[in-house]
């Protein structure tokens, strides 16, 4: 009985902040006029959705969102697992804590601030290009030595700054990299908690059986972590159409619009035009895709793990 009472606040939270606002979704099927209010605005049927799906901009934004999200998922999802595993191997406590604090820190900065820093770091005369120039200098020095030693005539590399922020491929690279950098410390915490729950006896007996660190990781740590990984993966899939609005909005520029304009930036433009119906339709579209993905992947996971590792 107590447990049921403890559930009440959580339920209330979701009812008030998640379920009641869902009624607002009818705006997506109306030609919403502020003076008339939600109830009295005229119905528009599926006109908003079809306008959305026909808009060239929206389809491009959708493609970009999926590409960016997939990249984030492929690289960003593995990074915290690796970090947690590596941190788990460190035995010196103060060193471990220091590292953990340092990687956790960027999570607390807003993208407005980070945007300014990243634009400077990756600008054509910023630190990243200085590092690149230094590397080229070292290469050229080595080439010079080889040329004078062996009498060869290898060409030196000429330096021209890498356009990190204005080349679409580099831009995606910066986007994914800085995204991981900002989030990895925070995401690793859940895995670290799961790791802390592994009984020491398991490692001890593996040790007795002659298993090294590598084997212990493969055969004990990873299997124990698996349910956490699957759960987080499923939750992450539901967010697949959230490609990281704050980050992109603060970093992108006209040259990379074609590959960086995502659904959220598109919706912002509609909202600034006060076209609430269209914006709601776009938001609803995102949620539906997210829900379909979660349900499907959960079914697949259940099928292959015989119902053991799915969310429900």
């Amino acid at each position: 009985m107590q447990l049921v009472w403890m559930l009440v606040p959580v339920l209330l939270f979701f009812i008030i902040f998640s379920y009641i606002p869902m009624c607002g979704l009818i705006i997506a099927f109306k030609d919403y006029r502020m003076d008339l209010g939600i109830i009295h605005s005229p119905w528009a049927g599926l006109a908003n959705l079809s306008e959305l799906l026909q808009a060239f901009e929206f389809r491009k934004a959708l493609t970009n969102t999926i590409i960016i999200s997939m990249l984030r998922l492929s690289f960003g999802f593995v990074a915290p697992v690796l970090l947690a595993l590596l941190l788990n191997e460190i035995r010196v406590t103060w060193y471990k804590r220091t590292i953990q604090t340092i990687v956790y820190l960027p999570y607390f900065f807003s993208w407005v601030l980070l945007g300014g820093i990243i634009l400077t770091v990756f600008s054509s005369n910023g630190p990243m290009n200085l590092v690149y120039m230094l590397l080229l200098d070292i290469c050229n020095f080595c080439l010079g030595q080889i040329n004078s030693l062996f009498g060869t005539n290898l060409h030196h590399f000429a330096f021209s700054p890498i356009q990190f922020m204005t080349n679409r491929h580099w831009f995606l690279f910066v986007l994914i990299l800085t995204g991981i950098w900002q989030e990895v410390g925070y995401s690793a915490i859940i895995y670290l908690a799961a790791l802390a729950g592994i009984p020491v006896e398991l490692y001890e007996s593996a040790n007795v059986d002659g298993a090294g660190r590598w084997h212990q990781t493969i055969h004990i740590t990873l299997p124990v972590l698996m349910p956490t990984i699957v759960t987080l993966f499923l939750l992450r899939l539901g967010q697949i159409l959230n490609a990281g609005f704050d980050q992109i909005y603060n970093l992108y520029n006209p040259i990379v619009y074609d590959s960086a304009d995502i659904i959220d930036t598109y919706v912002l433009r509609i909202l600034q035009n006060m076209d609430f119906s269209l914006a709601t339709a776009a938001g609803m579209f995102k949620s539906i895709i997210g829900m379909i993905l979660i349900v499907t992947v959960n079914m697949i996971v259940n099928k292959y793990t015989k119902g053991e590792k799915g969310l429900w």
Partner: peptide, 25 residues
């Protein structure tokens, strides 16, 4: 505890008074 929490939630969430009424303007 539940009651306090509920109060906080209600306090933080002023229910939209206008949007379900006939017309604001």
């Amino acid at each position: 505890t539940d009651f306090v929490f509920l109060c906080i939630v209600i306090f933080l969430c002023p229910m939209p008074q206008h949007i379900y009424t006939d017309s604001i303007y």
